[in-house]
């Protein structure tokens, strides 16, 4: 029992974060410029808008054994592309239900808005999300390594 607990503590989750170019990526940059420290478990994929994120991307990530996925975008009303984040919100609500039926814990997936000036909030969000994924422990799906390959035309 004790051993298990310590294992859980030392468990370093792998977390995928989508950031939109205009707000949340800038917010993540600001966290850096301001030197707000957060756990080194996230890997950011930059997209132009949170509205670009397809639900299949998230399913893919979980299929590969990634422990948590976080999607970030501009606050509602602030989207650089006017309404992309609203589309993201609708899609991710649907996805949440699907993930539940697939048996993936709710806390492994989150959608959150971060503005370009919210460096501190970004750091706090990452800290909080990482903690909650850590509490859940490793994903039940085994990790799958990727390939560097060319798309067949």
């Amino acid at each position: 029992m004790v051993k298990k607990k310590s294992q859980k503590e030392s468990f370093e989750p792998q977390i995928l974060v989508f950031c939109c170019n205009w707000c949340s990526y800038a917010g993540a940059d600001l966290a850096g410029v301001s030197r707000f420290q957060y756990p080194p478990n996230i890997r950011i994929v930059r997209v132009m808008c949170s509205g670009r994120v397809e639900p299949i991307f998230i399913l893919n990530a979980f299929k590969n054994g990634i422990d948590g996925v976080l999607i970030t975008g501009c606050h509602i009303g602030d989207c650089h592309y006017i309404s992309g984040n609203e589309y993201a919100q609708v899609r991710m609500e649907h996805l949440k239900k699907l993930l539940k039926s697939l048996g993936i814990e709710e806390d492994r997936f989150r959608l959150h808005w971060i503005s370009a000036s919210e460096g501190k909030q970004f750091a706090e969000l990452i800290t909080d999300f990482t903690d909650s994924v850590k509490r859940l422990g490793e994903s039940k799906i085994p990790k799958k390594l990727g390939l560097i390959e060319l798309e067949s035309c």
Partner: peptide, 25 residues
């Protein structure tokens, strides 16, 4: 599909997060 942020390109980024299978490559 979006140029420069295509489905395949983003999929590859996700696939390679967990590590790389060099032998298979």
């Amino acid at each position: 599909d979006q140029k420069h942020f295509s489905k395949f390109q983003i999929k590859k980024q996700i696939d390679l997060l967990t590590g790389i299978d060099l032998k298979a490559c």
